[in-house]
């Protein structure tokens, strides 16, 4: 008499979805890693000390998981939130006070803060174990770019609630761009780019203007940051994550003493 579990696992439907028997013996525990799309990121076997929590701190994995949490909660929030001066603040207010599952915004915001922290801790661990040393130099570079993009993701998202906290934080942050050398309206070398007496770099054509889409944080900025936050930066991050993970495998897996 076969158990219900066995009947399910032997059915044609189950077998068509999972291309391997249940990972209960050594052979199938190897096979599952090779035939499952989600698991094939991993090798089949690893050094025991390489996956010790006290060694890896699991911070890279946690950062990736938080990225997934941010993506899922972010997509759900996009169904509700409208990035316009008229509605942005009201939609966030509704998410706080009346909308079912408005807690998604809390998860999204705290997840973002947590992601900034875990990505720093991941960098910290990789540095302290010297894991950027050959052959992993380039993957460290990719990691630094991902760290920068994490900060930019958080920074662009900071504006979206469109409250006092949001626009003044972005104003303070983006004021720096005004002082970009040569390309900023108040940056050194700003006079270099001019035709005759016509200044090419003004407050309506400098680096800050490119960032904000206007001379101050306004409707154009909200639109620009919304697209950067929801589409442009996540796409680049997803692309670089794929490279980052692939290189972890190709450069010899989780680091350990040579």
């Amino acid at each position: 008499m076969a158990s219900l579990g066995e009947i399910i696992r032997n059915s044609q439907i189950w077998k068509s979805v999972f291309r391997h028997p249940a990972p209960l013996d050594r052979r199938n525990r190897v096979v599952v890693m090779l035939t499952n799309f989600f698991l094939h990121l991993h090798p089949v076997s690893v050094k025991k000390q390489g996956i010790a929590l006290s060694y890896t701190w699991c911070m890279g994995g946690v950062t990736f998981f938080l990225f997934l949490v941010e993506t899922i909660t972010g997509v759900l929030l996009m169904f509700y939130y409208r990035p316009t001066l008229e509605w942005a603040y009201h939609d966030i207010l509704d998410l706080r006070d009346v909308t079912s599952l408005g807690i998604l915004r809390e998860i999204h915001r705290w997840g973002a803060h947590a992601m900034v922290i875990t990505v720093w801790l991941h960098m910290y661990r990789v540095f302290l174990t010297g894991s950027y040393k050959p052959p992993r130099e380039f993957n460290w570079v990719v990691g630094v770019i991902l760290l920068l993009l994490t900060l930019l993701l958080s920074f662009t998202g900071y504006l979206l609630p469109w409250d006092q906290l949001a626009i003044w934080a972005i104003t303070v942050g983006s004021n720096m761009a005004r002082a970009t050398p040569i390309l900023g309206n108040e940056g050194p070398g700003q006079q270099l780019l001019s035709i005759g007496s016509i200044d090419m770099i003004t407050n309506a054509s400098d680096a800050r203007f490119a960032l904000l889409g206007a001379r101050f944080v306004g409707e154009e900025t909200l639109n620009r940051f919304y697209i950067l936050h929801c589409i442009a930066i996540p796409l680049v991050v997803a692309f670089l994550l794929a490279i980052h993970f692939w290189r972890v495998r190709k450069d010899g897996g989780i680091s350990g003493p040579l």
């Binding site: 990972p23 089949v44 076997s45 050094k47 699991c58 994995g61 998981f65």
Partner: peptide, 27 residues
């Protein structure tokens, strides 16, 4: 170093994927 003392290899299923699952649930 201690990390080198133990050269034992383990299968990713279950040793690593379970750790990852527990981390995900905890987070």
């Amino acid at each position: 170093p201690l990390e080198k003392d133990d050269d034992e290899k383990v299968l990713v299923w279950p040793d690593l994927v379970y750790t990852e699952l527990i981390c995900m649930i905890a987070i």
